[in-house]
Simulated assay, not measured.
Amino acid sequence: MNMHLRYAGAAPESQRQALAAIIRDQPMLMVVLEQLRDMALPDHLLVAGAIYNSVWNALTGRAALTGINDIDVIYFDDRDLGWDAEDRVIKALEARFAGLPIPVQARNQARVHLWFEQKFGIPFLPLRSSAEMLGRYASKTHAVGARLNDAGGLEIVAPFGLDDLFSFRMVPNPVLDNRVAHASKAERAKAIWPELTIIAWPDD
């Protein structure tokens, strides 16, 4: 078996433990997770490439930051849906993490429905949590988030499980018409991690 696939098909709990170990082995990710917890950012999750790219790098022996351009953080706060409130959080995180080698970018998921259709041309119903946003990602493989709880435990949120991630398989999520996003992300990822298998968007 190819060593990068050593967790493919493993039991869900074994995959969760493997993911937690990979995240804990990345000092930069742990700094972000600890700071987010200490800030008490509402319903926050560390998401996107900082997680799935870290997994692929760890399992293929690549440098830790290969393919990671930024660290994406989502949170959910519906107490104030104005842009100014979100901008204050964005600026606070930029200042807090200014010493990191790559930027930390935060977005309030309670506001996504206010701008998504105008930007992407796709209707978007309001979300009720950060975790719900993961279920609308263009790829099921990318729908993984993590946060630290007060006891130091690492909570993993993965609505589609982790097997696609550990199987190096990019699987589309047709809940929204995200065909273009899936294709562009897949093309970029395949160029960096040729071990990936890309599953095409389903025909209508």
Rank of each mutant, 00 (worst) to 15 (best):
N2R: 15
M3Q: 09
H4A: 02
R6F: 03
Y7N: 02
A8M: 13
P12Y: 04
R16V: 10
R16H: 15
L19P: 01
A20R: 05
I22G: 05
I23Y: 01
R24A: 11
P27I: 06
P27F: 10
E34D: 14
R37P: 04
R37A: 12
M39W: 12
D43E: 15
L46T: 07
A48Q: 13
A50F: 05
A50K: 03
N53L: 12
N53Q: 15
W56V: 06
N57D: 12
A58Q: 14
L59K: 02
G61P: 01
R62K: 15
A64D: 14
T66I: 11
I68N: 04
I68G: 03
D70A: 09
I71H: 10
V73K: 08
V73M: 15
Y75G: 02
Y75L: 13
F76N: 03
R79E: 14
W83P: 13
W83C: 13
D84L: 12
A85T: 03
E86C: 07
D87F: 12
I90V: 09
K91Q: 10
A95E: 14
A98H: 11
P103Q: 11
P103L: 07
R111V: 15
V112L: 14
V112I: 07
H113T: 06
H113P: 03
L114M: 11
W115I: 00
F116I: 10
F116Q: 03
E117T: 09
K119H: 11
G121N: 03
P123D: 07
F124T: 00
L125S: 15
P126Y: 12
L127G: 01
L127F: 03
R128P: 04
R128L: 11
A131H: 00
E132G: 01
E132V: 02
M133H: 00
L134N: 00
R136F: 11
R136L: 04
S139N: 00
H142S: 09
V144Q: 05
V144C: 02
A146P: 00
R147P: 01
L148C: 04
L148N: 08
D150A: 15
A151Y: 06
A151T: 11
G152W: 04
I156L: 08
V157H: 05
V157A: 08
L162Q: 07
D163Q: 07
L165W: 06
F166H: 03
S167Y: 15
S167L: 11
F168S: 00
V171F: 05
P172H: 03
N173V: 01
N173Q: 01
N173D: 04
P174Y: 05
D177P: 08
A181V: 14
A183N: 05
S184F: 08
S184V: 01
K185G: 11
A186M: 10
E187C: 11
A189W: 09
K190V: 13
A191P: 07
I192Q: 02
I192Y: 10
W193Q: 09
L196F: 09
I198M: 00
I198W: 00
A200H: 15
A200G: 14
D203P: 03
D204G: 13
